[in-house]
Design a protein around this nucleic acid. Structure first.
Length: 241
DNA sequence: ACATTAATTATGT
DNA sequence: ACATAATTAATGT
């Protein structure tokens, strides 16, 4: 149930929105102005699809606030979470991958705000904005790298190490400091974690309960705090040569 | 070593 | 009060 209601840009977007985002950080003020004038801004509730896998890639997006979950669905209907995207990154950039349809579904993991532009502007951006191409390909490379290591993990490690690794990545990318440790900055269920690690929510629940008793993590409904990242690293099977 | 099934309890609107 | 999340035990491959 995607909401496709047409959305006009109500307030003038402030230039400071983009000046510190890597793909735009090298640009002049007037260039940022140009870019913003062509953008639409939109707010999304948590858990809604921004676009769907296989749909024609009509727009590309910059996440201003919130988190995006990149999700694929298998032939049997099970969801697989590929990765999470934090604010400040581009997404839905099918064009950068030489595609004209979106390769995966993008779901908001929390309430989010994103700018978007028609995909026809992609080549123009790449051509005339200094640093845009290099910066975006850098993040594309990082994402491919992450998925790559996850594939290796799936094939080599067992479940306990995989969820440990998933947790470590999550607190690295989207961690927020709280008194008890580092909390994952968006609501995340055991189901979500299981879809990230290729296991069941039951196994994840058991693992988290066990770790909680050892004071390693602290978790509640839809929230997980990592207290001792060190011991998690040990469990994750950090390569000792 | 892990999934599946099922039954039970907790938690948020 | 109701739906959604989480836990826990038992059984299966």
């Amino acid at each position: 149930m995607t909401d496709n209601a047409p959305r006009k840009t109500l307030p003038r977007l402030d230039e400071s929105l983009l000046t510190h985002m890597p793909p735009f950080s090298r640009l002049e003020r007037r260039q940022i102005r140009e870019i913003l004038d062509q953008a639409s801004s939109r707010r999304y509730d948590a858990g809604v699809a921004v676009f769907d896998e296989g749909a024609p890639a009509e727009r590309f997006f910059m996440l201003l606030d919130g988190y995006i979950r990149v999700v694929r669905v298998t032939a049997t209907g099970e969801q697989v979470i590929a990765l999470h995207i934090p604010a400040g990154q581009l997404f839905g950039i099918a064009r950068a991958l030489g595609r004209d349809t979106y390769p995966a579904t993008a779901v908001t993991a929390a309430e989010s705000i994103a700018l978007s532009w028609p995909m026809r502007l992609w080549d123009e951006f790449v051509r005339q904005y200094d640093g845009f191409a290099t910066e975006t390909y850098k993040t594309v490379g990082q994402r491919i790298g992450e998925m790559n290591t996850r594939i290796v993990e799936m094939a080599t490690q067992q479940v306990e190490q995989r969820v440990a690794n998933a947790l470590l990545r999550l607190i690295n990318q989207t961690g927020r400091k709280v008194p008890e440790g580092i909390e994952i900055d968006f609501p995340i269920t055991r189901q979500d974690l299981s879809e990230l690690t290729g296991t069941t929510l039951h196994t994840v629940s058991r693992l988290l309960s066990g770790w909680e008793k050892q004071g390693l993590v602290k978790s509640g409904r839809k929230r997980i705090v990592v207290c001792d990242a060190h011991r998690l690293v040990v469990i994750s099977g950090a390569q000792l040569p």
